[in-house]
């Protein structure tokens, strides 16, 4: 049965674009995969995309942070880029923009029963961030096996594997990546099929920063208590097993915005500047039950 909900302009836009999220992600590949052969590696992109990838347009901010940490230099550009983008959008970047997120989303399309990742596993991302991006490079240098780039699945999938395939296709001698990289690729590929966004939810250091900024970002999620009927449909809609009705700006939320499809329209995308009058702006709109 159709119900009447109140929606702001921003939410109408979200409602229209939501069913096409994967197309938006795919569209952003035109930015990250440098179709014009632009390799602007002196600029950090705001997404998790290995700069060793032959098509990468920008430098990976996490790789740059780790390399700078190994040099004992503060990476102002990388931190500034991540902070600016994170403070504007939070983890909306993870849900809608990141190419490695899209890759995992495509893997999750394989119709296999998915394993549930507990929400607390998300805190492991901070361990990865502090450990492999800052502490290990700072104290042991970039040669340490726990240096983030050495264990990064993006590097393994976007550079090492394409290299092997290219060598095989062109008939050159195949230089196999080391056992660690091969293991990472296998584990990552399997994990992509059997669960949703395993890297983003358990290990991604960039996602950890964006997740932390969720509660402070200009773009934010709001639960309108007076509309919430406690039907818990938002929990069903959240494929990451979160509780948007309790914590709409959860650290572990990837802002796929699926929860905004809840029947009563209680969860809305808003900005910190939304005035009370804007919040009351109304447009009757039918919503699927």
């Amino acid at each position: 049965m159709a119900s009447i909900v109140k929606k702001t302009g921003l939410n109408r836009f979200v409602g229209r674009i939501l069913p096409r999220r994967h197309w938006v992600q795919a569209g952003f590949l035109l930015v990250w995969l440098g179709p014009l052969g632009l390799r602007m590696h002196n600029v950090c992109g705001p997404v998790f995309h290995c700069y060793a990838c032959p098509l990468a347009s920008f430098a990976c901010p996490i790789g740059v942070m780790a390399q700078f940490s190994a040099l004992h230099v503060i990476p102002f550009l990388a931190i500034g880029t991540v902070l600016t983008v994170g403070a504007l959008f939070g983890s909306l970047i993870c849900g809608w923009v990141c190419p490695f997120g899209l890759l995992q989303d495509m893997g999750a399309k394989v119709p296999i029963k998915k394993l549930r990742i507990p929400a607390w596993a998300g805190y492991f991302r901070y361990v990865v961030l502090i450990g492999t991006v800052f502490a290990v490079p700072w104290f042991f240098g970039e040669g340490h096996p726990l240096f983030v780039c050495r264990i990064c699945p993006a590097g393994a999938l976007e550079k090492a594997m394409p290299d092997v395939i290219s060598q095989a296709v062109t008939g050159k001698e195949i230089i196999w990546p080391n056992a660690v990289k091969i293991t990472i690729v296998i584990v990552m590929v399997v994990a992509m099929f059997i669960t949703i966004r395993p890297w983003c939810r358990i290990l991604c250091p960039l996602g950890a920063i964006f997740g932390l900024l969720n509660r402070f970002s200009i773009l934010s999620m709001r639960l309108e208590d007076h509309k919430c009927t406690a039907c818990k449909r938002c929990r069903t809609l959240c494929v990451y097993g979160l509780t948007p009705d309790k914590k709409p700006n959860d650290d572990n939320c990837l802002r796929c915005l699926e929860c905004t499809r809840c029947g009563p329209g209680a969860l809305a995308v808003t900005t910190v500047f939304a005035s009370p009058s804007e919040k009351q702006e109304t447009t009757p709109q039918p919503v699927e039950p």
């Binding site: 102002f76 550009l77 500034g80 880029t81 991540v82 902070l83 994170g86 403070a87 402070f216 910190v272």
Partner: peptide
């Protein structure tokens, strides 16, 4: 909340400007 969000954006832009 507004102040914090804007301050973080400005801090990020400031860091970028300094780095550049």
């Amino acid at each position: 909340r507004r102040f914090l969000a804007v301050a973080l954006v400005l801090l990020g832009l400031g860091l970028c400007a300094y780095g550049l």
